[in-house]
Design a protein around this nucleic acid. Structure first.
Lengths: 261, 261
DNA sequence: CAGTGGTCTAGACCACACT
DNA sequence: GTGTGGTCTAGACCACTGC
């Protein structure tokens, strides 16, 4: 591999175990896939360091530069975090700086720290069965067990976000209203620590809607008040959907911020 | 520079012209800044190729790998586009694939191609003076000349987007309603070809609102219909704001799609 | 100090596109 | 074939962190 790199593409060696190469792909992509598999398998837990670049290079029998490129891509996808002098860490939703990475609603002042922490209120939490829509969006079968959570977030005492959340019953076995209420910290952080499920990316569909009576009551607005409807599907590793969330946002004191590149 | 790379950091040589290094920064960052300056100066126009990596390496007297890393970052920021075997190109809004890169409103079917091209209708176009808000957001002084455009976009005959657009009068001297109406293609493409202004990134603030009477009439909806209010500031190179846009989106047949990472 | 990630080089070869 | 970007290597040194 040192003189004829990637010639007939011999399978990468991982601790002596050869891995099949389904099609041609660069070495660093294969390394990336292997790292991804280890992340998915929980070989290194969120917040922990992964082995150093030189360690990985010798383990995979490639040069450090090749490992580097694989890690670079995973870091660009927010799956890993590099810290010079310290190591490379498995990304987590538990860090102070990225606590609400997926929440794009910010106060109009623009300063997320100006308002204190959100007040959480679990309105409802029950086990039920997936209807056709929920099943389709969560890649389940209609009738499969799901957990439905309705919760209210308030900022400075003003109810601002009403979330309806559907979680697949299997992976989230044992999740109850009590555990939701008692946990202090972001929900995605709890998913990691309590269930080993890490949300990696998400897709949102946004509309302007009017609330129904119940929604208006909970958000303390008139039924004629336009609200932001945000449907989010959050994915774990390998693009597996793990959460369906329907949020209603008040936008009288907050707005949805988006950066386009 | 070949035996003692970056030791006391001698300024990078560009065709023999030395450039001051304000503070310590990696070589590839300096190269990146130089490339950015050339892009900004219009040395290579949108759609054209830039010199090959080896050419740039010899010009800047660095290795190809260093140039590569600089280009990699510019490509990641969508300022350049790499095409294997052909070269590296200055990104443009004129390519078919990225025509409406900043427009996140898609039909509910999800298939952007299912609907034909948008029907454009310039409702209004006039030169005026920036009020306090417009001036602040465009980094102008109140009273500075600006161009105000109001236009309507319809899909399959249904009016869907009402845009109010403010452009700084200086850079867009000579832009008239006729040129807007006659131009066939995305507005940002025209900005590039006619005015040499390339929009590089943008920031949006989204709210749910009710339209006023005039807006409702133009969009053919009731005044009680909730609409998406999207305020966009678009920037050219070096984070200079060049457009303020206030869009009103109907979300009965379309939705705003966002990907979170 | 040792260990980590970060930068830089020089050279080889591969994959792709155009002519 | 020639020229382009893409991959991979081996080795050197720098910058930062923590013991």
């Amino acid at each position: 591999m040192s003189t004829a790199p990637n010639s007939p593409t011999p399978p990468v060696q991982t601790d002596g175990v050869s891995v099949a190469t389904p099609a041609f792909s660069p070495l660093y992509q294969q390394i990336k896939a292997l790292l991804l598999k280890s992340l998915q398998a929980g070989e290194w837990r969120p917040g922990e360091t992964i082995p150093s670049e030189v360690d990985l290079a010798t383990r995979f029998r490639v040069s450090q530069g090749t490992v580097r490129k694989a890690i670079d891509e995973l870091a660009a996808e927010n799956l890993l975090v590099r810290r010079q002098g310290r190591g490379t860490f498995v990304a987590t939703h538990a860090e102070q700086l990225v606590q609400y990475r997926f929440l794009k609603l910010v106060p109009d002042s623009g300063d997320v720290n100006s308002e204190g922490p959100a007040q959480r209120n679990i309105v409802d939490c029950r086990r039920t069965r997936a209807n056709a829509d929920v099943a389709r969006l969560l890649a389940l079968k209609p009738g499969d067990p799901v957990l439905h959570v309705r919760r209210l977030l308030a900022f400075s005492g003003v109810p601002t976000i009403l979330d309806d959340i559907w979680l697949p019953g299997g992976p989230f076995k044992g999740l109850t209203a009590e555990r939701l209420t008692d946990y202090h910290g972001p929900m995605y952080e709890m998913f990691e620590t309590e269930f080993g499920i890490r949300m990696v990316r998400a897709a949102e569909k946004i509309r302007a809607v009017r609330p129904d009576g119940e929604q208006a009551r909970l958000l303390a607005v008139d039924e004629s008040t336009p609200l932001l409807s945000v449907q989010r599907i959050a994915y774990t590793y390998n693009d597996i959907p793990m959460e369906l969330r329907h949020g209603l946002y008040r936008t009288d004191t907050h707005h949805y911020r988006n950066e386009l590149n």
